[in-house]
Measured scan of single mutants.
Amino acid sequence: TEHYTFHTEEQAQRAAKKFKKQGLPVTIHEKNGKFTLQVN
C-alpha cells in the first residue's frame, strides 16, 4: 500500500486516474484540508 498526499482534490483525482488506468485500486481520503491518495 502506498500513500501520496496532495494539496488539492483536483491533483489527487488526476493522479488517481493514472493509477486506475494501470488497473490499480485507488481511494482518496480528505484529512485536514489535504487529500491522501491510497494505492493498494
Rank of each mutant, 00 (worst) to 15 (best):
K34G: 07
G33A: 02
K21C: 12
P25M: 15
L37G: 01
Q22C: 15
T5K: 05
F19L: 09
K18N: 07
I28M: 05
G23S: 03
K34D: 04
G33P: 01
K17N: 11
Q11P: 02
T8F: 04
K34R: 10
T36D: 06
Y4R: 06
R14T: 08
N40M: 12
L24S: 04
L24G: 02
I28E: 01
H3Q: 12
I28K: 01
R14A: 12
F35H: 03
L24H: 08
L37H: 02
P25S: 15
N32S: 05
T36W: 14
Q22R: 12
F35M: 02
Q11L: 08
T5W: 13
T8V: 03
E30Q: 09
E30D: 05
L37P: 01
A16Y: 08
Q38V: 15
Q13A: 07
A16N: 00
K34P: 00
Q38S: 12
K17P: 00
Q13S: 06
T36S: 06
E10D: 07
E9K: 14
E30T: 06
K17I: 13
K21P: 02
F35R: 02
V26Q: 00
G33F: 02
G33T: 01
N32F: 06
N32I: 01
E30A: 08
T1S: 10
P25A: 15
Q11K: 06
E9G: 04
A12G: 01
G23E: 02
Q38I: 15
L24T: 06
K21V: 08
K21N: 10
K18V: 10
H7N: 13
K20M: 14
Q22N: 07
E2H: 15
H29F: 14
A16E: 03
Q22F: 12
H29D: 06
Y4Q: 05
E9I: 15
A12P: 00
E10K: 12
T1Y: 13
Y4W: 11
F19N: 00
F35T: 02
H29W: 12
E9M: 15
I28T: 02
A16V: 05
A16G: 03
K31S: 11
T27Q: 08
L37R: 01
H7I: 08
P25G: 13
E9F: 15
Q11C: 11
K34L: 12
A16K: 03
H7G: 09
T1Q: 10
K21Q: 13
A15H: 05
K31P: 00
H7Y: 10
K20V: 11
T1R: 11
F35G: 01
T36R: 06
K21Y: 07
A15D: 01
A12L: 03
K31A: 11
V39S: 03
Q38G: 04
A15V: 07
A12Q: 00
H3T: 13
Q22M: 14
F35V: 03
L37D: 01
H3C: 15
F19S: 00
I28W: 04
A15R: 03
A16I: 05
V39M: 06
G23I: 01
K20W: 11
K18G: 06
K21G: 07
A12V: 05
Q11R: 06
K18L: 11
K31H: 13
K34W: 10
H3N: 09
Q38T: 15
T27L: 07
F35L: 03
Y4H: 06
A16T: 02
R14W: 07
E2C: 15
E9T: 05
Q22K: 11
I28G: 00
E2R: 15
K34V: 13
V26K: 00
H29A: 09
V26G: 02
Q38H: 13
A16R: 04
T5V: 13
P25H: 15
H3W: 15
T8S: 09
E2D: 10
N32A: 05
E30Y: 14
K18A: 10
K17S: 10
Q13I: 13
E30W: 08
K17L: 14
R14N: 09
V26M: 03
T8N: 07
Q22D: 06
H29I: 14
F19R: 01
V39W: 07
A15P: 00
R14Y: 07
Q38W: 13
T5M: 08
T27P: 01
Q11T: 05
K20H: 08
G23M: 03
H3D: 07
E10N: 06
V26A: 05
N40V: 12
K18H: 12
N40S: 11
G33Y: 02
F19H: 02
V39I: 12
E2N: 12
T27F: 09
K20E: 11
K34I: 14
T8E: 04
V26P: 02
F6W: 04
L37Q: 01
H7R: 09
K31V: 13
H3M: 13
R14L: 10
R14M: 10
K34S: 08
Y4E: 04
K17M: 14
K17F: 07
K21D: 14
Q22V: 08
A16C: 10
E2A: 13
Q11F: 05
V26I: 06
T27K: 07
T36H: 14
H3R: 12
E10V: 08
K17D: 13
E9H: 11
I28A: 01
K31T: 10
T1E: 09
T36E: 13
A15F: 09
K17C: 15
H29Q: 10
N32P: 00
Q38D: 07
R14K: 09
E2T: 13
T5I: 12
T8G: 03
K17A: 14
E10I: 09
N32K: 04
K31I: 13
A15T: 04
G33N: 04
T27H: 07
E9L: 15
A16D: 00
T27C: 10
N40K: 09
K18R: 12
A16P: 00
T1F: 13
Y4S: 03
E30G: 06
H7D: 15
T36K: 05
K17E: 14
G33E: 03
G23D: 03
Q38N: 07
V39A: 03
P25K: 15
Q13N: 08
R14D: 08
L37E: 00
F35I: 04
E2F: 14
F35E: 01
A15I: 06
T8W: 03
P25F: 15
T27I: 10
F6I: 01
H29S: 11
Q13K: 12
Q38K: 07
N32M: 05
L24R: 07
E10H: 07
P25D: 15
T36G: 05
A12R: 01
T5F: 10
I28F: 03
L24N: 04
H3P: 08
N32Q: 05
K31R: 11
Y4P: 04
V39T: 05
N40T: 11
K18Q: 09
T36I: 15
R14P: 00
V26N: 02
Y4N: 05
E9Y: 15
K17W: 11
T5N: 05
K17Y: 10
K20N: 06
A15S: 03
T27D: 05
T36Q: 09
A12N: 00
P25V: 15
K18T: 07
N32Y: 05
K21H: 07
N40E: 11
H7K: 10
G23Q: 03
L37M: 05
N32R: 04
G23H: 04
G23F: 03
T1W: 14
H7S: 12
T1K: 10
Y4F: 09
H3A: 10
E2I: 14
N40G: 14
K20Y: 08
N40R: 08
Q11V: 04
H7M: 11
T36Y: 15
A15W: 10
L37F: 05
N40Y: 12
Y4T: 04
I28H: 01
K17Q: 13
F19Q: 00
T5G: 04
A15K: 04
F6K: 00
F19T: 00
A12W: 02
E30M: 10
V39R: 02
T5R: 06
H7E: 14
V26Y: 08
T8R: 04
E9A: 11
K31M: 11
F6A: 01
R14V: 08
G23C: 05
G23V: 01
F6T: 01
E2G: 12
K31D: 10
T5Q: 07
Q38E: 14
E10W: 12
E9Q: 11
G33Q: 03
Y4C: 13
T8H: 04
L24V: 10
E10A: 12
L24I: 14
K21T: 08
P25Y: 15
L24W: 09
T1P: 10
